[in-house]
Amino acid sequence: MSEVLAIFEHDRGVAAETSYQSLGFARALLAAGVGSSITAVVIGAEADALAHDLGAYGASSVVLVHHAELTDYAPEAWGEAVAELIALRSPAAVVATGTDRGNEVLAYASAIADLPFAANVTEIRSVGEASLDLTRVRWGGSLLEQSKLVAASYVLSAAAHVFDGDPSPDHIGATAATESVDATLPSTAARTRITDRVTLSSGITLTTAAVVVSGGRGVGSAEGFAPLVELADLLGGAVGCSRVVTNNGWRPHSDQVGQTGKRIAPELYIACGISGAIQHWVGMMASKHVLAINTDGEANMVGKAEYAVIGDLHKILPAVSAEIRKRRTQ
């Protein structure tokens, strides 16, 4: 029997929407001819309860991995636990969703097991004897790489939001057999555990806002952001920015959108004085609608946006806020 181990990510027993995508990815591997069954891997006793519906996502069994060091996230302990399963079960593949934690755990597991690891895979193109032809993303999603992975067990993470995170139509009502496994972790596994948490107040954030008013070099200064903040406030939205802006210290890095900033998908993204470099675009390309405001009609952002206005953002934005106020008082 050759199984695909699908790591099921969670935070202290709470799963995220993306967690289920590792099972969608595992199903895609089976469909491509890698492995013949899916075993979900749930790490830490706090998450035992998450196992019960994984059968409906295509897992025929669930392994609950227990150990005193696995009560909270710890990259090294999780990586050791996965490496232990690889050594015990020689799976056809080990997969996770390509989140920060997913990639970190697989990096650890593959380093310990001395296996190669392909991060952020979007497609399995063909399956050979001991190799896979796959496509993965580079450059934060702006470039696709065709590569060959040669390994005894394929360690792969799925690019986020590429594979199905819904229950499998072929497994409606299916249940998975669960099995508990006690990990035997080395004493060093505890070196990287979370020792504390800092919770920030959660209001409307850049990642949850329906409208994002975002500024680039064209805004010109920190003070120049006032009309962007005003419009965002009026619409109950958030302010974003380009890397040039954070590099100049006009806005904090937590506002940065792009390859090395945040990935967002608001209903409306208003790009003010942003040229549309590829590294910025990958951060906001999932927006439902994009409005570009730019003095340059030839700017890449203008060409790629659904809507555009040509002109000076410092004149246009105050006029937009005034118009909104006017309509609201009418």
Binding site: L115, P116, S142, L143, L144, E145, S147, L149, V150
Partner: peptide, 11 residues
């Protein structure tokens, strides 16, 4: 190593 890059494509 086991990960061999072969070619690139634009998304």
């Amino acid at each position: 190593g086991g990960l061999l890059t072969e070619s690139f494509d634009n998304a």
